[in-house]
Amino acid sequence: MLDSKNVLYEDNHLLIINKQGGELVQADKTGDLTLGDDAKEYIKKKYNKPGDVFLGVVHRLDRPVSGAVVLARTSKALERMNKIFKERDIQKTYWAITTHRPPQTQDELTHWLKKNTKINKTSAFNKKVSGAKQAVLSYKLIGRVAEYYMLEITLQTGRPHQIRVQLAKIGCNILGDLKYGGDKAHSNDIYLHSRFVSFEHPVKKEPLNITAPLPKDQIWGLFGGK
């Protein structure tokens, strides 16, 4: 069951969880237990709720990615959060570790991404191609320890595998992300973490700023591990 220490924020409308690398957010062909199912069980037991528990998945993180995931506890909150994400009235910031220094200390990347659903892999192009969607992100180098570089990434669009494939396109592959040419790590997770989300609460209309602590890992620990 979901560990309460991984709950970053909770009220009657929202549940924000610090997802661990390897956790599946929504069901796929593996049939593995999902974070959504786990969160429902957590709510059911904590509040002694009979019957089915409503919980809406607002957005997803790739299975090997860790960090903040926003879930909705009511249909009203889900509808409003979906609108917030659709209209991009949310700031999403990620941290990534690579073993390659980025070409610039900071930059904005624009590519056109096309996903091959058969192999669950996305390709990035420098120019518009048929069936591809524009993807934009900004990054900056925020730390270096030994051969490792830490980048902070801010998304302006939300495309499948966007950060992973755009960084790979500039030769800055994420550590552990073998699918996109990253160096092998000691675990099956990749070093990409949804570090920070900021948006207006869909019901309370108050600013909500959430920071997800880094995974407890030797390499993340080189950069403070908090």
Rank of each mutant, 00 (worst) to 15 (best):
26 Q>F: 05
73 R>Y: 01
87 E>P: 00
73 R>S: 02
62 D>K: 12
53 V>S: 00
57 V>C: 02
77 A>Y: 10
83 K>V: 09
84 I>W: 04
54 F>V: 09
63 R>C: 04
70 V>W: 04
43 I>E: 12
62 D>P: 05
26 Q>E: 13
60 R>V: 12
61 L>M: 11
73 R>M: 03
19 K>P: 10
84 I>A: 04
38 D>R: 15
23 E>D: 14
83 K>C: 00
51 G>Q: 07
17 I>P: 01
55 L>V: 05
71 L>K: 05
35 L>C: 05
43 I>S: 01
30 T>D: 13
31 G>T: 07
24 L>C: 06
62 D>H: 13
88 R>A: 03
26 Q>P: 00
53 V>R: 01
69 V>L: 12
77 A>W: 11
29 K>D: 10
26 Q>D: 04
87 E>C: 01
46 K>H: 07
64 P>Q: 13
66 S>W: 09
21 G>I: 12
67 G>Y: 05
50 P>L: 10
33 L>P: 00
51 G>K: 13
42 Y>P: 01
38 D>P: 00
45 K>A: 06
86 K>C: 03
46 K>L: 08
42 Y>M: 08
29 K>P: 00
88 R>E: 07
49 K>V: 15
25 V>R: 06
55 L>W: 02
37 D>Q: 15
19 K>T: 13
21 G>H: 04
30 T>I: 11
38 D>Q: 15
58 V>P: 03
84 I>L: 10
31 G>H: 03
26 Q>T: 14
25 V>P: 00
85 F>A: 08
53 V>D: 00
76 K>Y: 06
25 V>S: 02
34 T>Q: 03
83 K>W: 07
74 T>P: 04
60 R>Y: 08
18 N>M: 12
62 D>R: 14
52 D>A: 14
47 Y>L: 09
34 T>D: 01
45 K>I: 04
51 G>E: 08
29 K>A: 13
68 A>R: 04
59 H>K: 10
24 L>K: 06
72 A>T: 10
16 I>V: 15
45 K>F: 00
29 K>M: 07
25 V>H: 02
86 K>H: 11
36 G>R: 13
63 R>P: 02
47 Y>F: 13
57 V>E: 02
31 G>E: 05
26 Q>A: 10
34 T>F: 03
53 V>E: 00
26 Q>L: 11
64 P>F: 12
